[in-house]
């Protein structure tokens, strides 16, 4: 479990790594109502699109150097040699990044949802969806980041972006369900199902990719 403690320490001390994405997300959320002069109802209609895209882009930004720094300074080599289970290291890194960046962004997204749409129940309903979706985004982008570890990390994340398009469609359906006050728990379970698969597969594949880069 030391790895979780160490990753937490590293990320907390590197404020650029976690504060940057949170600030970008906050700025987008603040800028959105300022840039359109519409009635409250119209603001609410396109808010969720902005919310998902902002979360997506910010997660992409947050994972930019999730492995790159460790690769460049030799820490990944040490992990690969000393840790029997590199996929656990990868999974722990992603979890810590989500905890420090994804969790606050989910909370902020819910707060902005209440503020902009002016319906408190929307904020509570969207919070678990944000929690799950940011974790999925982070996993997929980390995989992309590992893919192009030696060729500029942003390239790989852009390649993996299309993989998240089906998820955006599901998120759109969730918003429709919430808007019409329908039971959206089915979508929530679907997202949880996707997450439970991704949370196992992505660290495993990513650890193989990292080993290939270390060769």
């Amino acid at each position: 479990m030391d790895i979780i403690k160490f990753e937490f320490l590293k990320l907390l001390k590197k404020s650029r790594g976690w504060l940057g994405p949170i600030l970008v997300f906050t700025l987008i959320m603040i800028a959105y109502p300022l840039t359109v002069e519409l009635t409250d109802i119209e603001l609410g209609q396109s808010f969720f699109s902005i919310l998902w895209i902002a979360a997506l882009l910010v997660m992409m930004l947050a994972t930019e150097d999730i492995f790159l720094e460790d690769f460049n300074d030799g820490s990944l080599e040490q992990y690969a040699i000393s840790q029997n289970n590199l996929s656990f290291v990868v999974g722990s890194k992603i979890f810590i990044y989500w905890l420090v960046i994804g969790l606050p962004i989910s909370a902020l997204g819910s707060i902005f949802c209440v503020g902009i749409i002016n319906q408190p129940n929307f904020g509570f309903q969207i919070f678990p969806v944000l929690l799950i979706s940011t974790y999925i985004f982070m996993n997929v982008f980390s995989f992309g980041n590992a893919l192009s570890l030696t060729k500029g990390s942003i390239l790989g994340t852009l390649v993996t972006l299309p993989l998240l398009l089906p998820l955006l469609i599901i998120l759109g359906k969730v918003v429709i369900a919430i808007n019409f006050d329908l039971n959206y728990s089915g979508f929530l379970f679907l997202l949880l199902g996707i997450l439970s698969i991704i949370i196992v597969i992505i660290p495993m594949i990513t650890s193989y990719i990292i080993r290939a880069h270390l060769e």
Binding site: K13, D73, G74
Partner: peptide, 8 residues
């Protein structure tokens, strides 16, 4: 590579 974190 030293596996050291420059910012720590």
């Amino acid at each position: 590579k030293n596996a050291l974190k420059q910012y720590l």
